[in-house]
Design a protein around this nucleic acid. Sequence first.
DNA 1: CATATAATAGCACATATGTTCGACAAAAAA
DNA 2: TTTTTTGTCGAACATATGTGCTATTATATG
Lengths: 195, 195
Amino acid sequence: MVSKKQEEILNYIDKTIKSNGYSPTVREICEAVGLKSTSTVQYHLKKLIDLGFLNKSENISRSITSRTVDSKYGIPILGEISAGQPLMAEENYIGELPYFGNEINTELIALKINGDSMIDAGLYNDDLVVIDKSMIPADGDIGAFLIHNTEATVKYVDTIADKRYLIPANKNYDNIEIDENITQIGKVVSLFRDM
Amino acid sequence: MVSKKQEEILNYIDKTIKSNGYSPTVREICEAVGLKSTSTVQYHLKKLIDLGFLNKSENISRSITSRTVDSKYGIPILGEISAGQPLMAEENYIGELPYFGNEINTELIALKINGDSMIDAGLYNDDLVVIDKSMIPADGDIGAFLIHNTEATVKYVDTIADKRYLIPANKNYDNIEIDENITQIGKVVSLFRDM
DNA sequence: CATATAATAGCACATATGTTCGACAAAAAA
DNA sequence: TTTTTTGTCGAACATATGTGCTATTATATG
């Protein structure tokens, strides 16, 4: 996760690159965010780089580049959903997908596709799907759901004979009727695949 | 006005900013354009700044900015490939995909998938695939190719009986033998889908 | 040809800047 | 409570980097 200080650093870097055309030095960041040691900055920079928000060349001055110049927050990637924990609990957090939309949207999360139940919809194992929690999947949409509050799943939604179902895109899987055991997370709005 | 050397310097600066995200040092310019003294570079830099081509802050490393480069580093999205035009020609450019990889890489382009010839590989119509031009698709990989220099296509590559083929992931399409009409663009490294 | 202007080189200096290491306190987890 | 993680500091070090000065050579210009 990105701490308060890290966000502050990120913002300062973005602002500087945007207004100056080049990135600040470690010492400039130090001063700007009210830290007294350059190594504290290095510490945070390393984290931000690991999270994918920044990039930097070693031993090269002012070589920080930022992907978040136009946006502030990454999309949290959730892995295995821990039983009993609320969806956004730390336990579930496995990384962050840099956000590059135009508006800041805290309603976005990313889930890693597990298995092949949606393969006929072009959602493959290990794909990352971005879910907008503020959108309700309509019939025919692909949505993300929580089963028994312990397992996240991505499926088509549709109404058959007045009942709503989660519908896999793979003949080897059965439809699941939506009942009280199933909580809606949101609508799947985009997909990333690394090959 | 602008001498040969100065143009060379300008080009190098632009190229560097574009690919690295930050400007080169005086010494790097020195080396790159084949000069032996940093003060010669300073001499030219001053001229270029006076002429308004460059901007620079005093005593600040890597602070050169260029008017001829916009500091955006998205991945260019290429649409219909115009016959006769080089791949990266303006004619083909239909937009920019915000960059989300780890390193800044000028060898990346994005192509919009057209048709369903790769549907069994999970590449759907209108998907955007990111192509790394610096990578050669090996057997089994998905690559991007230019047919007759006019049409871009994305297919599996494989060797069958000592011949290399472009192989669609859709039974309704035939394999295409790779011959002199087919130019390799690069390897498909990731996928983006908006739903 | 003599002279001004444009390019280039070499070097040295000051400092801007990234990096490392050890220590320590606060917060979180076990 | 004990242990681990996270955040912080300070100082020292190595080098990356901008700058200034002088001298030399090429190219133009009168």
